[in-house]
Simulated assay, not measured.
Amino acid sequence: MSSPVVVGYDGSPEAQEALRWAAQEAGRTHRPLRLVHVGLGQGGAQSLSDGVERARTVAPGVEVTSALDLGASIAGALVDQSTGAHLLVVGARGLGGFAGLLLGSVSTAVAAHSRCPVVVVRHRPGPSVVPEARPVVVGVDGSMTSLRAVDLAFDQAAQRRAPLRAVHAWQLPVRLGSAPVWTGSEIEQQLATEKALLAESLAGHMEQYADVEVLPSVGLGGPAEVVLAASDDAQLLVVGSRGRGGFRGLLLGSVSQAVVHHATCPVVVVHPAEPPAV
């Protein structure tokens, strides 16, 4: 059996949006769907039952199972469920989430510690159908984790028959003291270097996914700022959990945190090859 798409479900509007996304993804990739609720009492079982019915309405042909976890830690239970999963899907906030809190503590912890890629979905009012013409966007910085994000992004773009916008951000180092300012030729040379890094990160994938339209983009500015600006019209944004210069002990880097907090589309956080330490 293929690995399942797992979704955390508590009946909240955010969880319902996450469930819809997960059910559609399971249908598109021909994978089973597993709903997980963490909590005590009859309410959890009823929430799961309602969720299963919702999932079957969204994706009638998908095999749907559910699991009620009575543990005390919601994030810990979902991380456990991520072992062997294809994707773990969570809402940005669940029941009891404060309106001003852009990302709940559970989704933050899950994005940091999951053993598979995590999709964070934010509830948005209005139609839930996303036009296929909208691009999949991936942040690229040349790191190994970024290359894993590129792998997943190409796969998603191919499945969705969507263009792929590959975004790389760069900044000129600040010259202090009496050092001369950057000359025009130096800036052009640095830009050429950054474009080459992006091209190298995409080269093998463009041959493998010849049908995917690739839109390379190199932007001057902070990585989070550049990636968020490029994803305004995206149907999906893919980032690595941490990139170049990221400290090994930092499970979720500053760029991925900012992107997950502020993106207006679902965000996939891809981890390094080794499982994050819990």
Rank of each mutant, 00 (worst) to 15 (best):
A210H: 13
E186Y: 10
L220R: 14
A166F: 05
V226N: 01
A162Y: 00
L147M: 12
Q171V: 09
S143N: 11
P173M: 11
M206P: 00
M206L: 08
Q235C: 03
S146P: 03
A169V: 01
A179R: 11
A234P: 02
V218K: 07
W170M: 02
V136F: 00
G177S: 10
W170I: 04
V218L: 08
V137R: 00
P216A: 04
A230N: 04
R134V: 04
L236E: 01
M206D: 04
A179D: 12
L220G: 05
R161D: 10
D233K: 10
S185D: 15
K195H: 13
L191M: 12
L172D: 10
A210W: 05
E188T: 14
F247Q: 12
S241N: 07
E132F: 04
E186V: 08
L147N: 11
S185E: 15
A199R: 10
S217C: 15
L215M: 15
T145C: 15
A166T: 03
K195E: 15
S185W: 14
L197Y: 08
L176D: 11
A162R: 00
V214N: 05
G184H: 11
A224V: 02
D211L: 12
V181P: 10
A192I: 08
E200D: 14
R148V: 04
H205S: 11
G184A: 14
R134W: 07
Q189A: 13
L164P: 05
D151W: 09
V218I: 11
S231E: 06
V226G: 01
W182V: 06
L250T: 14
V150Q: 05
R248I: 12
L236K: 03
V214D: 06
H168L: 15
G221F: 05
G240I: 05
P216I: 00
P216Y: 02
P135V: 01
L152Q: 08
G245T: 06
G240T: 06
Q171W: 04
A203T: 12
Q171P: 01
